[in-house]
């Protein structure tokens, strides 16, 4: 079955990972801008990273037949440095007309601090002004519930942001309904340790249905598995779900959400080479 991984940090992965994902049926990925494991020292460090996301990664993905999309921002962790964050936000528009950019992301909160809120709101300003899609990172572990509520509160401060153009990522059992009931899209992140598993993600689908929801691997430089969406497909199959149900969440939903971006162009795998 073809699938899309809507959240994976391929700059941290090898070309072998791209190839394994492609062999398992991955036909497209989207890569949000994130924390590199260390704080970057200057706005030029981010500019170089955004060039990697918009120039080099699409080529590397294409070499194995995967279509690469991306999201641009300064992540919540580095948002603690407000001055640098503002320089980065001012530079983001340089990249908003690149063909593989879907919008602003992954923005959000990490430790739910005032500085993170300041920079989150300034990203929202930019996204509202440029009518870009938004991809939201929610905190992990004990910060998640409070952080998700705060994020939704801040989005609601904006009457000019349509929740139907925003995806709230890393939802779990206690936050999935907050996202869906408020009209947002949502992502479930499958992580081998400490976070949601393929079994729990399948449970969530059984509880909330298949509308506006999609799994992702959030594969990065930490313990993570870029093939986690394929694991989810297997778990759903073992439970007796139809291929149509599975395809809806791992393929059709990401496509529907990405299609809301004015730049999104996609060739279905069946039409490749035509």
């Amino acid at each position: 079955m073809y699938f899309i991984d809507p959240h994976v940090h391929m700059v941290s992965r090898t070309t072998d990972d791209y190839e394994i994902m492609a062999r398992m049926g991955c036909t497209a990925i989207s890569e949000p801008a994130f924390w590199a494991g260390y704080d970057r020292g200057s706005v030029d460090g981010f500019r170089d990273y955004f060039r990697q996301l918009t120039e080099f990664e699409p080529q590397r993905a294409a070499s194995v037949g995967i279509q690469h999309y991306t999201w641009i921002c300064i992540n919540a962790k580095e948002a603690e440095n407000v001055e640098l964050s503002r320089e980065v936000i001012a530079m983001i528009p340089e990249f908003l007309d690149k063909p593989n950019v879907l919008g602003i992301g992954e923005i959000g909160l990490n430790k739910n601090t005032p500085n993170e809120c300041t920079i989150f709101r300034e990203h929202l300003e930019l996204a509202a002004k440029t009518n870009e899609l938004i991809l939201i990172h929610t905190p992990h572990l004990w910060d998640k519930y409070k952080g998700t509520r705060m994020i939704i509160d801040m989005i609601k401060e904006h009457s000019d942001i349509d929740p139907g153009r925003v995806l709230i990522d890393h939802v779990e059992e206690h936050t999935v309904k907050l996202a869906l009931d408020n009209g947002f899209w949502c992502g479930m992140t499958l992580y081998p340790t400490t976070k949601c598993t393929p079994a729990r993600a399948s449970d969530i689908i059984e509880m909330v249905g298949t509308e506006r929801i999609m799994p992702n691997s959030a594969g990065d430089w930490g313990p993570s598995k870029p093939t986690a969406v394929a694991d989810f497909i297997m778990e759903m199959r073992k439970r007796g779900n139809s291929d149509a149900t599975i395809k809806k969440v791992v393929y059709e939903n990401p496509l529907s959400f990405f299609s809301l971006s004015k730049r999104f162009e996609f060739t279905p795998p069946e039409q490749r080479g035509e």
């Binding site: 004990w142 409070k146 801040m154 206690h174």
Partner: peptide, 21 residues
Amino acid sequence: GPGRAAKVQLHFSDQYEEGWN
């Protein structure tokens, strides 16, 4: 149950204050 997983999640979560903003 059901709903135990969500309850366990909330049990291990920081408190949210309505109207914080």
